[in-house]
């Protein structure tokens, strides 16, 4: 196995005191392509928020190894973008350069070429001057993928990137995911389409608040594991007691 990119040490993530991800322990290898699957409410999005660092673990810790230079590229589920804001597609995509240009840095000729390449890679040439309010759902997702391309990050997190996206756009964007994998970037994607996971993602984490199975995709996605995942998340206890699992 190659080097570790993300290491989870008995991580519990949640809101208030309620765990949404409970005692996750393990690691994601650098350069791996991992799908996170599980029923709704299983803690998949929470897990990504924990990795990005916008949500602090209630217990345990998440370590990012060897990716300190560029921050993680993160595409949240149904990104909370203000679509009415008067911003052009070009400017939206150019935000991907933030980690290099920062507050005041200029955008060089080389950067402009990169922005154009990113727009071309997602098939949005000719959309540069369009206000983002005029984009369709699929075009918006293409623009956000272009921004991810520009972030040029070694770790990329995608939260349900293909929900409500048509087949052709999905295929185009999946090609980008494969390209990132070929470039040895670490990609973690939350997905619901199990066929797609089996087809494209070599690694999978099945989670239902508690991790159910983690490893090679076809072993993780066995009928038995999937059934187990479905049962676990339904067990919600309104009178839960304090968890003492690690209080040896």
């Amino acid at each position: 196995m190659s080097a570790t990119a993300i290491r989870f040490d008995e991580v519990t993530l949640g809101y208030g005191r309620r765990p949404a991800v409970h005692h996750l322990d393990g690691e994601i290898a650098a350069g791996s392509l991992t799908a996170v699957v599980g029923p709704n409410g299983a803690g998949k999005s929470t897990l990504l928020k924990g990795i990005v660092g916008t949500l602090r673990p209630l217990e345990g810790r998440i370590r990012l190894i060897g990716s300190s230079n560029a921050p993680i590229a993160y595409l949240p589920q149904a990104a909370d973008i203000d679509r009415s804001f008067p911003l052009s597609v070009y400017d939206l995509v150019a935000m991907g350069l933030w980690s290099r240009s920062g507050l005041l840095g200029g955008i060089s000729r080389k950067d402009r070429t990169k922005i154009e390449e990113a727009l071309a890679a997602v098939g949005l040439i000719g959309f540069e001057r369009r206000p983002i309010s005029t984009l369709s759902g699929g075009q918006m997702q293409r623009a956000l993928f272009a921004r991810l391309l520009l972030q040029d990050s070694s770790v990329i997190l995608l939260d349900e990137p293909f929900t409500a996206i048509d087949a052709r756009t999905t295929a185009d964007l999946l090609d980008l995911v494969r390209r990132w994998h070929d470039e040895s970037r670490t990609v973690v994607a939350v997905l619901h389409d199990l066929d797609m996971v089996r087809r494209v993602f070599p690694q999978a984490l099945l989670i239902a608040r508690e991790p159910v199975a983690w490893g090679v995709t076809h072993e993780v996605l066995s009928a038995e594991n999937l059934l187990k995942a479905r049962r676990m998340v339904e067990a919600h206890d309104p009178h839960a007691h304090e968890c003492h699992r690690n209080a040896a």
Binding site: V52, T54, P71, I72, A73, Y74, P76, A79, D80, I81, D82, F85, L87, L92, M95, W98, S99, G102, L103, L104, I132, R147, Q151
Partner: peptide, 23 residues
């Protein structure tokens, strides 16, 4: 002039700004 970028970003896509910067 100095705050222009984070101001715009914080309006358009606050989650993104939080993921790349503490500004």
């Amino acid at each position: 002039a100095v705050l222009y970028r984070p101001l715009v970003l914080e309006c358009v896509d606050p989650t993104f700004l939080r993921s790349v910067s503490r500004a």
